[in-house]
Each structure stands twice: as C-alpha cells, then as structure tokens.
C-alpha cells in the first residue's frame, strides 16, 4: 500500500512538471523565437513595409489578409527611437512588442485624433510606483517608456480592396522610425 501511494504521488508530481513545461516553458521559447524572427527579418531602427505577402505570412502569422503591415525592430540602449507616421484615412494602428512577445503598447487612428502620429520610445518604467501610465503627450508627440532596450514596432493599415493596397503600402512607407536626434527627458 505504501509503495502504491509513493508511485502515485511520484506520477502526479512528474505529470505536474510535464504539464508546466508543456504549457509555460516551451510556448515561452516559441514566443521569444517568433519575436526574434520578426526582429531579425528587417533592418534595425528602420521602417520596412512588408510588401511581399509570402514574407508577411512568414514573419507575422495569423494576421488579417486585408491589412498592410510595416515593422521596425528597434534598439534604444543608446538613443530613443522616434516614430513619425501620416495616417492613411482608414483604420491604422501601431503596436509595440517586447522580445518576450509582450504587447506593451497599442494605439489606433481614432485614438490618435489627428492625421499624424508622432512618438518617442525610450527606456524607463512604463508605470510609476503608483501604477500610473507614464505614456504621455509631449510637444505634439507621445513618449512611450519600456524597460526593455529592444523590441519591435508593428504598424498596420486596413486595405479595402486589392486596388487600394498600393496606397496603404505607400502610406506605411512614408513612416519614419529612426534614432532620435536629441534625447528627451522622461519628464
């Protein structure tokens, strides 16, 4: 009887360990690999429009087909990154992902409120000790804080039909994503 209880408990513990590895550890590796692939697919600190649909499907899986995408992998360990984007007049959104795959920021065109988006991504705590969001508008732009020095910006625009894809891609191509000329203070 004692032996049966021992083996039963041992199996439960081993099953729990295997369950955790399968549901937490392996997926985390997969997620980090997904972002690493996305970050390595294009040039650092530069916006790249994913015109080639095959490449788009390789680096950004499960995304709507009727969207145009641009990505900018960034490294802000030395300088913040400045983003400036004209909005195309249809649905548009910007998202920022950390290397862990965590989506730290998303904003769409209606939330921007104007026809132009400007932001500075810099290192710092995304929230104050009181839990207040430190993202704020400064001089017409938004300051976004992240604790991670690297990450990737994903910008997407809705494409009504195949004919308007060219316009959406051109709008994304006029987005700027580059090291900021001067370092703004965290304010």
């Amino acid at each position: 009887m004692r032996r049966f209880i021992f083996w039963s408990l041992a199996i439960v513990l081993l099953a729990a360990a295997a369950h955790i590895v399968t549901s937490v550890f392996f997926p985390r590796l997969e997620r980090e690999d997904t972002v690493a692939q996305l970050m390595g697919a294009t040039k650092l600190n530069t916006i790249t429009v994913l015109e080639d649909e095959d490449k788009l499907k390789t680096v950004l899986r499960g995304v709507p087909t009727d969207m145009a995408f641009a990505i900018c992998p960034y490294d802000i360990s030395e300088k913040p990154i400045s983003i400036s984007a004209p909005l195309p007049g249809t649905y548009w959104a910007i998202s920022i992902f950390e290397p862990s795959g965590h989506n730290i920021y998303t904003l769409n065109d209606t939330q921007v409120g104007t026809d132009h988006f400007a932001a500075l991504i810099m290192q710092g705590e995304a929230k104050t000790a009181a839990g207040e969001d430190t993202s704020k508008r400064r001089g017409g732009g938004i300051v976004i804080h992240t604790t991670q020095p690297r990450g990737v910006v994903v910008i997407r625009a809705f494409v009504d039909d195949r004919a308007s894809r060219k316009n959406a891609l051109a709008s994304l191509a006029s987005t700027e994503c580059k090291p900021a000329l001067s370092t703004a203070s965290a304010g």
Binding site: S23, E30, D33, R61, P64, A93, N103
Partner: peptide
C-alpha cells in the same frame, strides 16, 4: 487573447501558433 492578464494556456495557444495577438479592444 492578447490581454496583458491572459492566463498561461491562452498565451501558450497563440505562442505555439507563432502568433502575436492584440487585445479584444483592437481586434
């Protein structure tokens, strides 16, 4: 999907599909 407070299984589901979902407020 895509929520900051998503449970590990939901995160695992999309991680294994190699997708980066956005929160339901966006999509």
């Amino acid at each position: 999907a895509g929520h900051p407070d998503a449970d590990p299984y939901t995160k695992a589901h999309f991680s294994l599909l190699r997708e980066l979902p956005l929160s339901s407020f966006e999509q």
